[in-house]
Write a protein that binds this DNA or RNA. Sequence first.
DNA 1: CGTGGGCTTGATCTAGTTCAACTAACGTGG
DNA 2: CCACGTTAGTTGAACTAGATCAAGCCCACG
Lengths: 236, 236
Amino acid sequence: MLSTRVCAECAVRDRSLCGSLSDDELVALNRIGQRRRIARGETLIWAGDESIICANLLDGMMKLSASTSDGREQTVGLLYPADFIGRPFARQAGFTVTALTDAELCVFPRGQFEAVLHDHVHMERLLLERTFAALEDARGRMLTLARRTAEERVAAFLIDMADRFGSAGCRASNDAPLTFDLPLTRGEMAELLGLTIETVSRQLTRLKTDGLIALPGPRAITIRDRQQLEGRAEAA
Amino acid sequence: MLSTRVCAECAVRDRSLCGSLSDDELVALNRIGQRRRIARGETLIWAGDESIICANLLDGMMKLSASTSDGREQTVGLLYPADFIGRPFARQAGFTVTALTDAELCVFPRGQFEAVLHDHVHMERLLLERTFAALEDARGRMLTLARRTAEERVAAFLIDMADRFGSAGCRASNDAPLTFDLPLTRGEMAELLGLTIETVSRQLTRLKTDGLIALPGPRAITIRDRQQLEGRAEAA
DNA sequence: CGTGGGCTTGATCTAGTTCAACTAACGTGG
DNA sequence: CCACGTTAGTTGAACTAGATCAAGCCCACG
């Protein structure tokens, strides 16, 4: 009873995997799930560790990252609220999962989560669809990392962030200036875009001096000319 | 009856998704599946096209590729026998699928394949596991494309190919020279590794002059010192 | 106040691209 | 059977996008 309440009040109930479950099914999931808060910078899972947990991200933002043996790092995915974390059916975690902001999770022991998955075909189907979507995203990013210029990467990233965090909903084609705070530092952007901090910074100031964006504060971005920014993102 | 025979004789029966089905379940799949041969260079699916088919690769090798609007291309995945092709539950194909060698496929209409998937939970589970594996592979490749040097990419690629095509099974740690034919041209390697043809060629001749490999013919590779080659692949 | 992290800016360097020959292998048709 | 065009591969010289190295700036926080 109380436990269904917890899920019923979940911020991402309707968007997460759990949205596929009926109220009574949620009871089972609640029994194995545990709320957990994690601070910005903390890492939940280390690549190579035994894969013991899965989770749903309830609030905040996290990153998935990989690194070479000599320490070069690359962010290979971003996680947003309602996203699924972890890899069922695998013994080892493939990537490191770290909080980019303070975050809140619903954590499940992997084995038990697999059992729930097994018993709830619809949930498994949803996870399959999400995994396909993640795969498509990763492959698209491969094109970016391998072939796009620094300017294209930065411009495309800003547009993506504007669409996610730009207030006043999705007024995508609106040409009024739009201001929002980036949830990532320059260093985190560099790690995501396959560049260095300096290059990211230079590209931003270039877009600023060209009048396409403004930088009201270190973390704030104003999109002043979305049209042109889109042009820079896909310089045909 | 005849139709089950077709699957029973399938070269990849035990390794493909279909391996999860009982003989009588195969009948259903056979009814919707169709053998198809495709020549080297032909493309089966174009990115952006309506997603009408799924398939199993029976024999040969294919690539998945993406490109920018101005024609820069990147191979985002390789497909080997028994691999699954296509994206169920999506209306559009995300990537172009092209044969790297003459190939043979078992093709299913997407909708009908989805229905089979729906009716055979075990098969859906297998597909989920494969999709996770593909996702992990794609993310690992992101690290390579963003952070590794040309030499590391080429060396790692050769080791991967040696493990797949090196005759006499997986004598991975054997230090006897191992010769095999690359299934990819220099251009295809470049597209896969995020480099240019010239860079791939130069790296290969460097590895040759350093004595780690030999190049008996344009397509042939001899691994002469796997240890050292591995060192070049992960220059710690 | 000073100290440290995040950010910017400048100067220099370099790995890999680009451009340009050139070579080798391979069919195809005269 | 050989000339010839074509495609794949190699090699060299020059160039450049982005990395690296090196200050400095700004502000929050102890």
